[in-house]
Simulated assay, not measured.
Amino acid sequence: MSAPISDISGEHKVYLRFLGKARHFLFNLRSFNLTPAEPIPAAATKAVEVSVALGCAVNGTAQPSDIAAAVKMASQADVALVFVGVDQAIGAEGHDRSHIGLPGVQSDLIKAVLAANPRTVLVISSNAPVAINWEQENVPAIVGGIFAGQEQGHAIADVLFGDYNPAGKITTTWYASVDDLPHFHDYDVRKGRTYMYYQGKPLYPFGHGLSYTTFEYANLEVTASALKPQKAVGIALSITNTGRIAGDEIVQFYVHVNGSKVQRPIKQLVDFARVHLEPGETKTVSFALGHDDQALKYWDEAQQDFVQEPGKIDILVGASSADIRLKGAVNLMV
C-alpha cells in the first residue's frame, strides 16, 4: 500500500483496528496507525506483489467492469485468491437469509477467475455456512476463515504462504442445499438438524477440517467392557503424523446409544483433544467416559428428568463426525 500521509514516505506497516458491535458490518475498519518501516529480511530473495480488485460486493452486486478487472488481474497473476462469503448485512440475528448459497454473482466471479487462472484459491470469509457445491468440485484449494476475527488477515496469509499448518474444524454442519433442512419454523432438531440427526450427505460434516499433513489412527483400547454407576471407562488410541511436516490434529470422540425406546442421536460428541505431532511422531490420546455423561441420557417426559437405559454404547473416534477411524463398544449398566 502506498499513499502520501502527512508527508511520511517509505514502506510502512498498516494496522486496521477492529471496532466491532457495528450493525451490518462483520468487520468495521475505520482507522489505522503507522509504525516506522521495517527492513526487508535478508532471507527474502523475492518480493511478493499483491494486486487487489473488488470483483463484486459482499451482497453479490457488481458492474460488468468489476468482474472484468478481477479476471484480467487473475490472468496476469501466479496465483489468484478469491474471497467470498456472507456478513451481517446478508444474515444476522433477526435478519435471515432466504437461501444458503453465495449471494448474487459471487459464484459467477469464482468461475470467471478460475477460468482465467487455474491456480485459484478460494477463501471463505464468512459468518455462516454457505453451499459451495460447484466450488468444492472444481476449485483446487479452499480455505475456511469462519468468524476469524480481527487478525484474520495475518492468519489467512500465514496459511496461504505455508507458514502455518491449519488444524481448525468446523463446528456446524454445512448442508449442500436448503432443501436438506426442515421447514424454517420447525425447531425439532430430530427432524434432520445437525450432525446428530441428519441422515443425508452434507457438503462438509460437523468437525471437518483438513491439514497440510496426514494422520493415522490406530490401536483403540477401551479399559472395561461394562460402564457401571459412579464409574468411568477409559478410551485410548494412538495417532501418527504420516506426512512430511508438523501439524495438529483434533481427535474427536463420539458415542451412539443402541436399542433405545426413543429416538437417539446418530452420534453425539463427548470430547475432543488437539494433538501436535512432528513428522513420523506417534502419541497416545486418552479420553474418559463417565457413567453420568450427558451423551448417555435422554429426557423422559413422564419422569420430567434425564434418564438412562441399559445397553450397548458404540465408541466412535475419528477426524470428523463423518470420518470415524476407530470403533469400539461398552455396555452401560443402570
Results as ranks from 00 to 15, higher is better:
residue 81 L to I: 15
residue 88 Q to F: 15
residue 66 D to A: 03
residue 124 I to G: 04
residue 115 A to Q: 12
residue 94 G to C: 12
residue 85 G to N: 01
residue 125 S to I: 14
residue 66 D to C: 03
residue 62 A to P: 11
residue 106 Q to V: 06
residue 74 A to C: 03
residue 123 V to K: 12
residue 122 L to T: 06
residue 41 P to K: 01
residue 46 K to P: 04
residue 91 G to E: 14
residue 79 V to S: 00
residue 69 A to P: 02
residue 135 E to K: 08
residue 110 I to D: 02
residue 115 A to E: 11
residue 45 T to K: 15
residue 135 E to Q: 13
residue 39 P to W: 06
residue 72 K to A: 12
residue 77 A to H: 02
residue 45 T to G: 13
residue 70 A to L: 02
residue 87 D to V: 10
residue 102 L to F: 14
residue 104 G to R: 11
residue 63 Q to S: 07
residue 73 M to P: 00
residue 50 V to A: 06
residue 42 A to F: 04
residue 77 A to R: 03
residue 52 V to G: 02
residue 115 A to K: 11
residue 60 G to Y: 09
residue 45 T to F: 04
residue 98 S to T: 15
residue 73 M to I: 03
residue 52 V to N: 01
residue 51 S to T: 12
residue 134 W to P: 13
residue 90 I to V: 12
residue 47 A to K: 06
residue 107 S to M: 08
residue 98 S to D: 15
residue 125 S to A: 14
residue 108 D to L: 07
residue 42 A to T: 04
residue 38 E to Q: 12
residue 134 W to Y: 14
residue 74 A to T: 04
residue 119 R to L: 05
residue 97 R to I: 08
residue 110 I to W: 01
residue 110 I to G: 01
residue 88 Q to S: 15
residue 39 P to H: 03
residue 127 N to C: 13
residue 71 V to N: 00
residue 120 T to G: 12
residue 83 F to G: 09
residue 88 Q to Y: 15
residue 44 A to I: 10
residue 80 A to N: 05
residue 78 D to W: 07
residue 102 L to C: 10
residue 88 Q to C: 13
residue 59 N to R: 12
residue 115 A to W: 13
residue 91 G to T: 15
residue 76 Q to P: 00
residue 81 L to H: 08
residue 93 E to L: 13
residue 132 I to Y: 03
residue 66 D to E: 10
residue 120 T to Q: 14
residue 69 A to F: 08
residue 111 K to H: 12
residue 75 S to C: 05
residue 64 P to L: 07
residue 51 S to F: 04
residue 46 K to N: 07
residue 139 V to T: 11
residue 55 G to H: 12
residue 106 Q to K: 08
residue 85 G to Y: 03
residue 131 A to P: 00
residue 80 A to M: 10
residue 124 I to N: 04
residue 99 H to E: 14
residue 64 P to R: 09
residue 39 P to I: 07
residue 48 V to L: 15
residue 115 A to R: 09
residue 51 S to R: 12
residue 41 P to Q: 01
residue 83 F to Y: 15
residue 68 A to I: 04
residue 82 V to Y: 06
residue 133 N to C: 08
residue 73 M to G: 00
residue 129 P to V: 07
residue 103 P to H: 09
residue 71 V to K: 00
residue 138 N to G: 01
residue 121 V to F: 03
residue 73 M to H: 04
residue 56 C to H: 07
residue 45 T to D: 06
residue 79 V to E: 00
residue 97 R to M: 11
residue 102 L to R: 10
residue 96 D to K: 13
residue 130 V to G: 00
residue 135 E to A: 12
residue 99 H to P: 07
residue 104 G to I: 13
residue 49 E to V: 11
residue 57 A to M: 09
residue 132 I to N: 02
residue 114 L to K: 08
residue 93 E to R: 15
residue 76 Q to S: 08
residue 126 S to G: 00
residue 111 K to C: 05
residue 132 I to G: 01
